[in-house]
Amino acid sequence: MKWRGTRESDNVEDRRSVSGGKVAVGGGIIGIIILLLNVFGGENAQLITPVLEQLQGGQQTQTEAAAPLSKEDEEMGHFVRAVLARTEDTWDKIFKEHGMTYKKPKLVLFRGSVQTSCGGATAASGPFYCPADQKVYMDLGFFEELKTKFGAKGGDFAIAYVIAHEIGHHVQTLLGTSAKMHHDQQGKSKAAANKLSVALELQADFYAGVWAHDNQEYIEEGDIDEALSAANAVGDDAIQSKMQGQVVPDSFTHGTSEQRMYWFKKGFKSGDIDQGTTFEEI
C-alpha cells in the first residue's frame, strides 16, 4: 500500500510503551478460543476476555512496562496513522454526501493488555471496537497470529483491511445500526441472534471494501489479495473446521469465508454504502 508521505491521523493513542498488567502467558486453548470468538470486530471481545481468563487460573502473570518502541514499531505506528487518516477522509466525505457529520474515532495501539470503557481485554481478543468510548483497540502482534495460525498471506494491506473493518463498526454505531441490531436480538433464539451478528460483521466487511474503493490511488498490486486472504482465513467455517474439525452454521457470528470475501469485494466494486444490504440478505 502506498502510504509514505501521506497525511497521518492525530487520533491514534500509542500505548505500546506503557502497556502492562495481567496477560495470558503462552496463549493456551483459552487464548485461542478468545481470539476465534472475537477476531475482526467482535464488539463483545473485551467483555468475554476477562471471564475466560479466570478459567486459566494460574496462567496469569503481572508484566512489567513494555519495552521501548523499536524502529520497526515506530514505522508501523506511522502506517496505522496513515491508514486511519485515509478512513477519516473517506467517511467524512461519504457522511457529508448524505447530509451527516462524521465523528472521528480514536485508535489505540497496545501491547499485552488494555483497559477500555467496555472492560479489560488482552491481546488474545484480537482487534476490536468499543462502542462505549468509540475507540478501536489493536495489538499489532495479532497479525503475526493471523499468518501463523490461520494461514493468511499477511502484508500491510491485511492490516489496513482490519482497521477499515473496525472503523466500519464505528460507522454502524454512528448510524444506529449496531443499536438496532442489539435491540432486534432480544427475545430471539441463539441461532437467530447469531444471524443478526453475522449481518453486522459482513456489513463491516462491506464498509471496508467501500473504503478500499475510495482509496484505489494508494492500492498496489497484490493488496486486495492480501485483504481477501485475511477475510478467508477468519471465516467462521474455516476457523471451526481447523480448530474443531466440524462446522456448526448456527453458531456462526461473523460469516463464512465466502461471505466475508463476497461482501468486501462488493463494497470494493460498488463504493456505494447503500448496497451494504447484509441484513436483508442473511
Rank of each mutant, 00 (worst) to 15 (best):
193 A>G: 07
209 G>V: 01
8 E>Q: 14
10 D>W: 09
59 Q>S: 15
8 E>G: 14
9 S>Y: 02
191 A>G: 07
269 K>I: 07
115 Q>N: 09
23 V>C: 10
127 P>T: 00
2 K>W: 09
213 H>G: 04
1 M>Q: 08
177 T>I: 15
67 A>R: 13
143 F>A: 03
110 F>N: 03
199 A>K: 01
14 D>H: 05
49 T>M: 10
40 F>Q: 03
93 K>W: 08
251 S>L: 05
2 K>T: 10
198 V>A: 02
146 L>A: 05
205 D>E: 10
231 A>Y: 00
226 E>K: 12
2 K>M: 09
95 F>L: 03
119 G>M: 04
125 S>P: 02
25 V>C: 08
206 F>D: 03
215 N>C: 10
143 F>M: 03
204 A>Y: 00
175 L>C: 13
189 S>R: 04
16 R>F: 01
116 T>H: 07
159 I>M: 01
222 G>F: 06
180 K>D: 11
282 I>G: 03
186 Q>A: 15
145 E>Q: 11
223 D>A: 10
217 E>I: 12
132 A>F: 11
17 S>E: 12
13 E>M: 01
277 T>G: 03
30 I>D: 06
88 E>M: 06
201 E>C: 03
156 D>L: 14
71 K>N: 15
239 I>L: 12
100 M>T: 12
213 H>W: 05
10 D>T: 10
4 R>P: 05
149 K>N: 12
81 R>P: 00
21 G>Q: 03
196 L>C: 02
128 F>W: 04
36 L>S: 10
47 L>N: 08
199 A>P: 00
278 T>I: 07
194 N>S: 05
207 Y>A: 06
183 H>D: 15
157 F>C: 02
47 L>S: 11
109 L>F: 01
31 G>T: 06
110 F>S: 01
245 G>Q: 15
49 T>R: 15
212 A>H: 06
53 E>P: 02
278 T>M: 09
220 E>Q: 14
222 G>W: 05
149 K>A: 09
89 D>T: 11
5 G>R: 08
163 I>T: 01
241 S>Y: 13
58 G>F: 06
176 G>K: 08
37 L>Y: 08
24 A>F: 12
46 Q>H: 09
172 Q>C: 10
41 G>R: 00
20 G>W: 08
185 Q>D: 05
80 V>Y: 02
33 I>D: 10
177 T>L: 15
260 R>H: 03
195 K>R: 09
189 S>K: 05
55 L>V: 04
210 V>W: 06
181 M>S: 11
106 K>G: 06
231 A>W: 00
176 G>Q: 06
61 T>H: 14
272 D>M: 07
1 M>S: 13
14 D>T: 07
137 Y>N: 04
107 L>A: 04
67 A>P: 11
139 D>K: 02
220 E>S: 11
89 D>G: 09
60 Q>C: 13
200 L>Q: 09
50 P>A: 08
80 V>E: 02
113 S>C: 02
36 L>P: 01
48 I>Y: 10
116 T>S: 11
262 Y>W: 12
76 M>T: 15
227 A>Q: 00
37 L>A: 09
27 G>I: 14
101 T>Y: 12
233 A>C: 06
182 H>S: 15
187 G>Q: 08
203 Q>Y: 06
255 G>E: 00
271 G>D: 01
128 F>Y: 08
105 P>C: 13
262 Y>D: 08
228 L>G: 00
258 E>W: 04
60 Q>W: 13
28 G>R: 12
